[in-house]
């Protein structure tokens, strides 16, 4: 369970990333976070695994108070939370399996870490994760020879092999064509249902968000302006999230936020 209690995040340059966020996500939920670029979607995601520190409020993940974590505890904590990026962030010069196994590196003994030799159990776990996303046959191919969709599935397998409770996905399909994007979203949905892993996913495409997620969180200028089941999302709500004026079915601060909407180009 992820619980934001009155969380705010202010960047050193004064930019407000998150403002009084209250949010509770149960284990196994599939949540899509939508909003304009710069609205705070990435900040919200990156606070969960402490890639960003929060400025005030309380954030607990599975009962752990994230703000209290230090050094080694952060690394151990992060290894249970998978993360997926828009640009895949793979080592392109290494094989697919090599990329997947990086996820298990923190658990290896020191000499294995030095030499980069993985035990057979790790290799089997890696192959299993690749099988799970349907690219087992590419295990020994170099990543730079794969298509974008295949690369994102390698990234997905990389998080799966760590046996995470939560997967954070930051614009996972923004760099993919519509058909491939659907395939990758299917993978997310299957993993969410079969393995009961919570998925928090930032996404630009509202139609994809509505088609796949159970719950939609709308964010505008660091504030949550909508939070509800996918079935409750209407065109007005989407307009409200993206333009900042309109209907009343908004949870959270009801008063209209400042007139001008700042959009990071």
């Amino acid at each position: 369970m992820i619980k934001f209690e009155n969380v705010s995040k202010i960047y050193p340059n004064g930019h407000v990333g998150l403002k009084n966020v209250d949010l509770q996500i149960e284990q196994g939920e599939f949540v899509a976070i939508i909003g304009l670029s710069g609205a705070g979607k990435s900040t919200l995601l990156r606070c969960v695994n402490k890639m960003h520190d929060i400025s005030s409020g309380k954030l607990t993940v599975n009962g752990v108070d994230v703000t209290q974590l230090k050094g080694k505890e952060i690394r151990r904590f992060r290894s249970k939370i998978g993360m997926i990026f828009q640009s895949f962030n793979l080592i392109t010069r290494t094989t697919v399996l090599g990329n997947v196994l990086v996820s298990l590196v923190p658990e290896l003994s020191w000499w294995r870490r030095l030499l980069g030799v993985y035990p057979a159990t790790a290799k089997i776990a890696g192959l299993k994760a690749l099988d799970n996303v349907g690219i087992l046959d590419k295990a020994y191919t170099r990543v730079d020879q794969l298509s974008g969709g295949q690369q994102q599935r390698v990234a997905l397998a990389r998080t799966l092999v760590g046996d995470p409770d939560i997967i954070l996905a930051d614009e996972p399909v923004a760099a993919l064509d519509p058909v491939t994007a659907k395939i990758v979203m299917d993978d997310f949905q299957r993993i969410n249902r079969e393995m009961n892993i919570s998925i928090l996913l930032n996404i630009h495409h509202v139609d994809l968000a509505v088609a796949y997620a159970d719950r939609i969180v709308g964010i505008r200028q660091g504030e949550i302006v909508f939070d509800g089941p996918t079935s409750a999302v209407t065109q007005e709500i989407i307009d409200e999230i993206y333009q900042g004026h309109g209907s009343s079915s908004i949870k959270g601060s009801a008063e209209p936020v400042a007139a001008e909407v700042v959009v990071d180009a």
Partner: peptide
């Protein structure tokens, strides 16, 4: 490519 470093940060490396 520095992206991989961010990803490894997120893995707790």
């Amino acid at each position: 490519d520095r992206g991989i470093l961010e990803a490894m940060d997120a893995m707790g490396c």
